[in-house]
């Protein structure tokens, strides 16, 4: 081993000219990643650490002045009913809307997988809600839900399902159910596309073999399709859990957390504490706690995402 034993100075004692090819490449690689790293430090790492730091202060938003209070923000939160109620709302919302998204997503994906007329137009129409601005989605649904002139009340009354116009967003459990439903409408296309892509890669022979073995439509779904979808479904569920859990726009715009705090999730509580109640420290504490809950799912997803690619 000749080159190993000819002792080289450490890289920082040599000029760039004396770097080996490998070291020169490493330098170039680091230059290329530098803008990313700097941006990350400035807009993600710093705020993240600052959020944790701020959660130990009591800060009045308009003056931005405060003092150290240690863990008292956390202690207050964990004793308050509002935090636990928001967490519970958050779980109901996430589980509810996610279940609908998955069921509806698989159904529509299987439908689009069949041979139907104008399939690509159908696919575009199905995809559209996902790309739509949440503001637009909320405005449209608020108009549909409108208690006096909304189409939904007319339709249901005409069909005889209800006799009186229903207050879809101002009452419980209507408000939560409406939220869950609109959330499902907005986000199920994600499931559709991911599942559809996987469906298209299931070899036709598997179905033919199952047919020869005498499997009916349902048996083919449960014995062939579902096992093939398992992996992609796990990833979709993890991702959508994370995204639904942190949803802010839809809930804030639809109900604002109301009636009172019946649909308030943790994201909304963070916002309310900081900008309505002017308690930045307490708000940061909620944000940190929320992130701790999410870390479980993030860790699961990171492990899952790392697995197959390597």
């Amino acid at each position: 081993m000749s080159a190993d034993t000819t002792a080289k100075l450490p890289w920082f004692r040599r000029s760039y000219r004396n770097f080996s090819l490998e070291e020169k490449y490493a330098v170039l690689g680091m230059i290329l990643i530098a803008p990313t790293v700097m941006t990350f430090c400035a807009v993600i790492a710093y705020p993240l650490i600052a959020a944790i730091y701020l959660s130990f202060f009591s800060i009045y938003t308009p003056t931005m002045e405060g003092h150290w209070v240690g863990f008292s923000n956390y202690a207050t939160l964990l004793q308050s009913g509002e935090f636990w109620r928001s967490l519970w709302n958050n779980i109901i919302w996430t589980v509810g809307t996610l279940t609908l998204q998955i069921l509806f997503g698989i159904l529509v994906a299987m439908m689009l997988h069949q041979n139907m007329v104008f399939r690509s137009l159908a696919r575009s129409l199905v995809l559209f809600p996902y790309f739509l601005s949440t503001v637009v989605a909320v405005l449209v649904w608020k108009w549909l839900f409108n208690d006096l002139y909304g189409v939904l009340n007319h339709l249901f009354m005409w069909a005889g399902v209800i006799d009186m116009p229903v207050d879809w967003l101002g009452k419980m459990p209507n408000a939560m159910l409406s939220l869950i439903f609109v959330g499902a409408w907005k986000y199920f296309p994600f499931v559709v596309i991911a599942v559809l892509a996987r469906l298209q890669s299931i070899p036709e022979e598997l179905y033919e073999a199952a047919k020869i073995d005498g499997a009916g439509v349902f048996a083919r779904f449960f014995d062939v399709t579902l096992p093939q979808l398992k992996d992609v479904l796990v990833v979709i569920i993890l991702l959508r859990t994370i995204w639904d859990f942190k949803e802010f726009d839809l809930i804030n715009l639809m109900t604002g957390g109301g009636p009172i705090i019946a649909t308030q999730t943790l994201s909304l509580m963070v916002y309310k504490e900081a900008f309505a109640l002017n308690q930045m420290g307490a708000s940061s504490a909620v944000a940190v706690l929320m992130m701790l809950v999410m870390l479980v799912f993030m860790a699961l997803y990171l492990r899952k995402a790392k697995g197959p690619s390597e």
Binding site: I33, T36, V37, F40, V43, I44, Y46, P47, L48, A50, A51, L54, M64, I242, F245, K246, F248, L266, S267, V270, Y271, A274, M280, S283, S284, A287, V288, M290, M291, M294, M298, Y301, L302, A305, K306
Partner: peptide, 22 residues
């Protein structure tokens, strides 16, 4: 770093918003 990118991709915006506001 690659792992970190994926992690930040999942991070909720509400966590960052107060320090960013400051």
């Amino acid at each position: 770093l690659a792992q970190l990118v994926l992690f930040t991709y999942l991070l909720p915006s509400v966590v960052l918003i107060i320090p960013l506001y400051f």
